[in-house]
């Protein structure tokens, strides 16, 4: 038998190589442009904003290479605390434990608010009874004690029909779930367990859209993209100082803080060591200059002018502090 096994295997490899097409190298540009790598990780909620900023930044400083991974807010903070990444996208503030980890590795950082997100509480459009809920009612419905007990609409409000409530919410690993439980139940990561959970918010949209007795919550952007299939309800926090009665989430009500307590800030965290590098300074400044337009474009709520100014001041002071300490 005259043929070599080695050549057979080689031809397999060549075949695999040929399966997918190759790309072209990027053109070189000269000039005194910034260079370097910026490593970003963290929340998938904040990702679209960072993606949009990085996309625009390409045309400003094409030689700065930006890479964004998606370990989630918590996973990102673990890497951030070990100085493996420069910036962490976060859909909640850093926790005490995560600050400790960063300190033990000598990592210092600054927290910058980049946008707001509203959490929409939605029902099926055929649901003609529920148009608003109080925070108290939501708490009664979602607290751990409600499991197996509060199962019908008329247990929430007696005038509502005697029908089952079907609950939908994001998976317990998501920052959205953490924030909702903190704001409504009063304790982060604590809720009833008998609801349909999914990490993919589009699954929740489908669930609520196809079930007359459903109630669910997720990011406002998912409601706005599917407004024809869902009905959003107003939330009354019982505090007249930030708007009277039930208030529905919208760009306006989240921005002016009357949609309480389900509006939340989104952050980026910048490592101090990284902040000393000119390309990181340039990128973060660009981020703060463009975040309001871009976050509106990808479905989030921009900061007000005063808030934007405050964040920019925090960043400039931080950078000045860094160069002073050198």
């Amino acid at each position: 038998m005259q043929f070599s096994f080695l050549s057979a295997m080689t031809s397999v490899l060549v075949a695999i190589l040929l399966t997918a097409c190759g790309g072209q190298g990027s053109g070189d540009q000269s000039g005194d442009q910034l260079q370097g790598d910026i490593k970003i990780d963290g929340s998938s909620t904040v990702y679209p904003i960072t993606e949009a900023v990085a996309e625009e930044y390409r045309s400003v400083e094409p030689k700065v290479k930006i890479s964004v991974a998606l370990s989630g807010t918590g996973g990102g903070f673990k890497k951030f605390g070990r100085a493996e990444i420069d910036i962490n996208d976060a859909s909640r503030a850093i926790k005490e434990k995560e600050v400790e980890l960063a300190k033990s590795n000598g990592v210092e950082f600054v927290e910058l608010t980049v946008a707001f997100d509203g959490m929409a509480v939605v029902v099926n459009p055929q649901n003609d009874w529920c148009t608003d809920m109080t925070v108290e009612e939501l708490k009664m419905l979602w607290s751990p004690e409600a499991q197996g007990k509060i199962v019908r609409w008329n247990q929430i409000r007696p005038e509502w029909p005697d029908e089952e409530v079907h609950l939908f919410g994001p998976g317990v690993e998501s920052g959205t779930y953490d924030y909702f439980t903190e704001a409504i139940v009063g304790k982060s990561h604590s809720s009833r367990g008998d609801f349909t959970a999914s990490e993919d918010d589009n699954v929740l949209v489908q669930g609520v859209a196809s079930d007359k007795n459903a109630l669910g919550f997720f990011g406002l952007a998912y409601y706005e993209e599917n407004a024809d299939k869902l009905k959003v309800i107003g939330i009354d926090d019982g505090n007249d100082e930030n708007g009277t009665g039930p208030i529905k989430p919208s760009l306006e009500t989240v921005k002016n803080k009357t949609y309480a307590p389900l509006g939340r800030p989104l952050f980026i965290y910048v490592n101090s060591e990284a902040g000393k590098r000119p390309e990181v300074q340039s990128f973060v400044s660009f981020y703060l200059d463009n975040m309001n337009d871009l976050s509106a474009e990808v479905g989030f709520i921009p900061l007000s002018d005063t808030e934007t100014q405050n964040v920019k001041t925090i960043w400039t002071t931080f950078v000045e502090g860094l160069s002073a300490s050198e």
Partner: peptide, 14 residues
């Protein structure tokens, strides 16, 4: 995902 593959990167892998 666990080892940290990127989602956004503009670097052509060489």
């Amino acid at each position: 995902i666990v080892i940290g593959a990127m989602l956004y990167t503009t670097t052509i892998p060489t």
